[in-house]
Amino acid sequence: MTTAESFQRIYQRACDRKGGEAALAALLGHSASAAEISVIPDNLLLGELTKKVFQSGFVWRVVRQKWPGFCEVFFDFDIEKILLMSDEMLEAKARDERIIRNAAKVFTIRDNALMIDDIAAKHGSFARFIADWPTTDIIGLWAYLKQHGARLGGNTGPYALRAIGKDTFILSTDVEAYLRASNVFDGGINSKRSLAQIQQQFNLWQQQSGSSLQHISQIIALSVGENYLGMQQ
């Protein structure tokens, strides 16, 4: 049985640790509206997916530094141009010094372009598909990206969604530790059962607070662990 606290208690502890409501608010990110997400061009969305794929297991700063090179090498992630690239072209691109040379990850660019193109054919645009997905089942969108995309499992898909403004929680180390200690789930973090239990708890906290999933997960992380920013330890 879960022993998770009310969101108000979690929020108050985070405020105490960070030096008050204003200080805490300054640390939080913000999600975009469905209307704002729905008009993002598909090439920019492919770019965000690609950036998170390359950042997974790597130094994020290096990916950011190399990003202009990625845009040059991959035609600003133009979907039609990416889909025309042969295996030989992708292999050649993977050797380009302007990017991080990882052939397996380079091939995901075309794979994810195929996913975006397929979704756009069915829903008008990939952006509209993302915008319309209900956040009360955000784990369902994670699962869709993992199943139909390339290397978008784990936290890669959620981080990509957050980067484009889609409201989502992130199962960071601190968040996972809190949820496990509170008996929100007791199995593997990525099992369907565990994710459903976690989604249910986040939905409850959202009902209690009216806050976004992003703010809830960030506030949980800031309420635990070694992160007394803004306060003397």
Rank of each mutant, 00 (worst) to 15 (best):
Arg9Lys: 14
Lys18Pro: 02
Ala113Lys: 04
Gly188His: 08
Val73Phe: 00
Lys166Met: 00
Leu46Asn: 03
Asn190Gly: 02
Ser86Lys: 01
Ile99Gln: 00
Asp167Val: 05
Ser223Arg: 04
Arg17Tyr: 00
Gly154Ala: 11
Arg180Met: 11
Ala131Ser: 14
Lys166Val: 06
Cys71Glu: 08
Lys166Cys: 00
Ile220Leu: 08
Gly187Trp: 05
Ile198Arg: 08
Gly225Ser: 11
Gln218Thr: 04
Ala25Thr: 15
Val224Gln: 10
Trp60Glu: 03
Thr2Tyr: 05
Glu48Arg: 15
Gln206Cys: 07
Tyr228His: 10
Gly29Asn: 15
Ile138Leu: 12
Gln207Lys: 11
Thr2Glu: 14
Gly19Tyr: 09
Phe75Asp: 12
Thr136Trp: 13
Ala32Gln: 14
Asp78Ala: 04
Ala160Ser: 04
Trp67Met: 01
Gly157Glu: 00
Ser217Ala: 13
Thr156Phe: 03
Lys122His: 11
Ser38Leu: 05
His215Phe: 01
Asn155Phe: 01
Lys192Asp: 08
Ala14Asp: 08
Thr108Gln: 02
Asp16His: 07
Phe74Asn: 04
Ala32His: 14
Asn43Gln: 15
Gly225Cys: 06
Ile82Ser: 03
Ala103Gln: 14
Phe129Met: 11
Gln8Tyr: 14
Pro134Phe: 06
Ser33His: 12
Asn43Phe: 05
Met115Val: 13
Asp118His: 14
Gln200Gly: 10
